[in-house]
Amino acid sequence: MNRLLKCLLWSGVMAWAIAGGGCRRAGPVLRLYNWADYIKPELVQRFEREQGCRVMLDTFDSNEALYAKLKAGATGYDLIFPSSYMVAVMRHQGMLQPIRRELIPNLSHLDPAYARYTADERCEYSVPYMMSNSGLAYRRNRVPDFKPTWAMFDRQDLAGRMTMLNDMRETIGAALKFLGYSLNTTNEAELASARDVVIRWKKNLAKFDNEQYKNGIASGEFLVTHGYNGDVLQVMTENEDVAYALPREGVSIACDEMAIPMGAREVELAHAFINFLHDPAIAAENAEFTCFLCPNLASYELLSEEIRHNPAVFLPEDILARSEVIRDLGADNAKYIRVWDQIKAAE
């Protein structure tokens, strides 16, 4: 009997330690699911202090990974950061909660010029976070005769030192732009010619890659890479030889948005965080850190010259006119999958 009592006592102690003893700071916990290096850590800490809460950050590396995880039933995230096409899919699937605009007074600062690039112009289910585009990163002193065009991937003197994104829509999209087609095309003939272009480029590529190209271009392993503007600009602050260029044929533009998934526990805190990030001063500070464009009109005048007048962040009109947002194609996605399979299998 004595032993049983002891046992009970100890399990009680353990339960207390696990349940309460572990977290010393009281208050709610906001769980974010975001891309890596996509928010200034000091701002998160400021929000924690202001709201008396804790923020936990988990990261994903592709919209598909985010979607697959939530679709498989993952819960516990209060705020997620999918790109607009994925917002459309998730909204269609009933995976998002409606946004309560009255809790986000800073929505008034949103730049209407970028609304057409989002999935949800009226911010019913999502609020724009950052605008990105994908172009070319290159080493200034190592690439002779660089030209801002997707045709760089045809350069045989750079064979084995170039990468393209391991993302069928981005990479096939680059070839479609190169050929002068829409990167949302569903025309079989256009897709077939884009396929042949990527297969031709592939002979000069070291690999298809979404993450390691940043280290690769910084270390000189790669000389030309296909990548996202903010990621490359972040590398550029550390390595002066790296530069970013927008191919003249046009690029893909994406808007990453903030959305509250079904099953979120801290819904009001999530709204407060969206509002916090769209405070003009905060938005500017965050944009300076991430080197992406936060479509917050009032924040623009607070940006440094480097960002405000950077064509890689604020695209010039002529490039913008030739650029497009990747849209979810529903059943026609299968055409891209088929083409991507053929590209991957080609020798």
Partner: peptide, 20 residues
């Protein structure tokens, strides 16, 4: 691996993630 070093494991990942 390079652009032509895909193995079955990579194909499974592609089917599950990007191809849904």
């Amino acid at each position: 691996g390079g652009p032509s070093a895909e193995m079955i494991g990579n194909k499974i990942a592609q089917r599950a993630f990007s191809d849904r």
